[in-house]
Amino acid sequence: QIFVKTLTGKTITLEVEPSDTIENVKAKIQDKEGIPPDQQRLIFAGKQLEDGRTLSDYNIQKESTLHLVL
């Protein structure tokens, strides 16, 4: 699982696999929060994550925290 922290300070927990794409993660966030993926920007280690890449591409491991910017 990974954590996604929103600007409001809320933390969302997501069940993911390293092979999941960023697009996939955004879809999971939409399921939980109702935020359309095209409004979501995910930041990890100061980098904006691209939809077509996977979590493992960015070396995002379990218990990692991503930041969600709208």
Rank of each mutant, 00 (worst) to 15 (best):
E50G: 04
I29V: 06
K47C: 14
V69Y: 11
K47T: 12
P18K: 06
L7T: 13
E63G: 15
T13Y: 07
L49K: 00
K32C: 09
E63Q: 11
L70Q: 10
L42Y: 03
E50K: 07
A27I: 14
T13S: 09
K28R: 07
K32R: 09
T11D: 04
D20A: 06
D38H: 15
F3S: 05
L68F: 03
K26T: 02
T54S: 08
D20L: 06
N24D: 11
E50F: 07
Q40P: 01
L42E: 00
D20R: 02
V69K: 07
K26W: 03
D20E: 10
L66Q: 01
N24C: 15
Q1N: 11
T21D: 03
T54L: 10
G34V: 02
I60F: 03
F44W: 10
Q61N: 10
L49M: 06
I43S: 11
V25Q: 00
L49S: 00
E15N: 14
D51P: 07
E33F: 09
A27W: 14
D31F: 10
K62I: 09
A27V: 11
G46R: 04
Q39P: 02
I12G: 01
Q48M: 12
L7H: 15
T11R: 08
G52L: 08
G34T: 03
E63N: 14
D57G: 04
P18Y: 13
S19R: 07
G52Y: 12
I2Q: 01
L66Y: 02
I60E: 01
L66A: 02
T21A: 04
Q61E: 12
S64H: 08
E63S: 09
T54F: 07
Q48C: 15
Q48D: 12
I12A: 02
Q30C: 14
K5Q: 13
E17Y: 13
K28G: 03
K47G: 06
A27N: 13
V25K: 00
L14K: 00
H67R: 09
V69H: 10
K26H: 02
G34H: 07
V16D: 00
T11Q: 07
S19D: 12
D51K: 04
E17N: 14
Q1I: 15
G9L: 04
G52P: 06
E33W: 12
K32I: 11
T6C: 13
R41T: 15
S19M: 09
L14C: 04
L55P: 01
K62N: 13
S19A: 09
H67Y: 11
D51H: 06
